[in-house]
Design a protein around this nucleic acid. Structure first.
Lengths: 246, 246
DNA sequence: AACTTTTGTATCGGCATGTATCCAGCCCCC
DNA sequence: GGGGGCTGGATACATGCCGATACAAAAGTT
């Protein structure tokens, strides 16, 4: 039995919502529709989706807020494609910072939307499965540690609990979500605190140092977090999801 | 020493090619130009690019063919922005299917092109690693060493860890990506730091010397990195990818 | 309000990186 | 074969980035 990709279209506008869903169905995909964030989360609880098409301009929680909520919750692996109203650069940039994977500018042609949906899905499938972050990853394993993202603490191999402060936890999760990648201080600040760096801002350095000491990661060794001079930091240890096959 | 994005403009039309490249340079980017696919691949071998602007309508291999070739070869990770001739939807869709990241319709305004270039670069940087396409293998073996590109360190045959500084790691990876080839100091600077050499710039010499000492590669012996007088350096040891058969 | 915990700022020292300098080896030409 | 000039190796040193510690400010707890 072949897997057919299942798309969730989230838009308050009835015509767009059903029009897009119909078009996707006519082109061999499964499609569902949701009118708002509440509806979306309800459906996410009962079905698995391969991609979410999310309109930015919506009453109530707009697409950007939903995007961030998705990315910080248990569905943070779902690819997200944003529909941006105008060709507004700030919206697109903010959207990408919130973790969207691509965007399409309204008005769009259905064919282009479909092509971009397929492109994003194709990219997600291109990597070996053990690198993929799966849907319900509530714990992430790396080295001799496991991070329990629900309880917000670290466990070592014997199950001993190491408490993390809020900032430490957020930083660690950012690293685990972007392993093997140099992250600049700007990006780290943005992703952990949602603010921009000021001149001579070295709070991230300190936070990294504190996280390192929690992980018993000596500066000499740096087997978890490596410093890349004048660029930022890399989390350089493979991250696995205990549930999925490795 | 900040990284400046380097764009390669591929177009057979001289005016567009140089015009676009000039405009990009005036706006703070580095830009190079190539007339066709052959030229493009030649430059990809010797310089690092952050994005390729690719015209679809070209004699010989057109942009779509080149796009697919790029995506299946060793430069599969480079972001690609297509220039489509008319407002031809088919071309655009096919382009996205071939793995392009975005497109601009001719005639275009330089400002829009620049904005899209920046957006695509920003997006690919922002993309979580499970959606990113990786450049090269995880570990590369040569002589009695293995380079772990994820952890950014060297391992000898007994598994002992040798730490590398950021610059040393980048240089070694460049050598391993271009073995058995003389690389000029210019190319090495380009590929490791993304910058051009200044007069009397000898930082590469020093870096090579430091890397040699890490590899226990005596200047007398030079079994790994050979000096080619007045031309550059060659990495002269076979490199294998442990995963694939040698 | 006093205390604890977390988070940011200031400061100092160490190290990575690049520049300057000196010197050795190679090449060329006579 | 022996200068002279050029190229590259080695050392020394300057600079700026980062780690660590100490301390101050802010936030949460009792």
């Amino acid at each position: 039995m072949e897997h057919i990709d299942h798309i969730l279209v989230v838009d308050d506008d009835h015509d767009i919502r059903t029009g897009v869903a119909d078009y996707l169905r006519k082109n061999g995909l499964r499609a569902s529709a949701a009118v708002d964030g509440r509806d979306m989360f309800a459906q996410l609880d009962t079905s698995a989706f391969d991609l979410i098409v999310l309109d930015i301009m919506m009453p109530g929680d707009d697409g950007l807020v939903l995007c961030r909520t998705l990315r910080s919750g248990k569905h943070r692996a779902v690819p997200i494609l944003l529909l941006t109203a105008r060709d507004d650069e700030t919206d697109r940039i903010v959207g990408l910072e919130m973790g969207a994977d691509d965007y399409v500018v309204k008005p769009f042609s259905p064919r282009e939307l479909l092509a971009r949906i397929k492109a994003v899905i194709r990219r997600t499938r291109m990597l070996p499965p053990n690198l993929r972050i799966t849907e319900s990853a509530d714990t992430l394993a790396f080295g001799r540690w496991r991070l329990d993202t629900a309880a917000r603490h670290l466990l070592d191999e014997s199950g001993t609990n190491v408490a993390l402060s809020g900032a430490e936890f957020r930083l660690l999760r950012v690293f685990l979500d972007h392993p093997q990648r140099v992250l600049s201080r700007d990006q780290l600040l943005n992703l952990t605190q949602g603010r921009d760096a000021e001149l001579f801002d070295r709070s991230i350095d300190l936070l990294v140092s504190r996280l390192r000491s929690r992980l018993d990661d000596d500066a000499k060794d740096q087997s978890y977090i490596k410093t890349v001079r004048s660029e930022g930091y890399v989390f350089c240890m493979p991250v696995t999801v205990p549930g999925s096959d490795a």
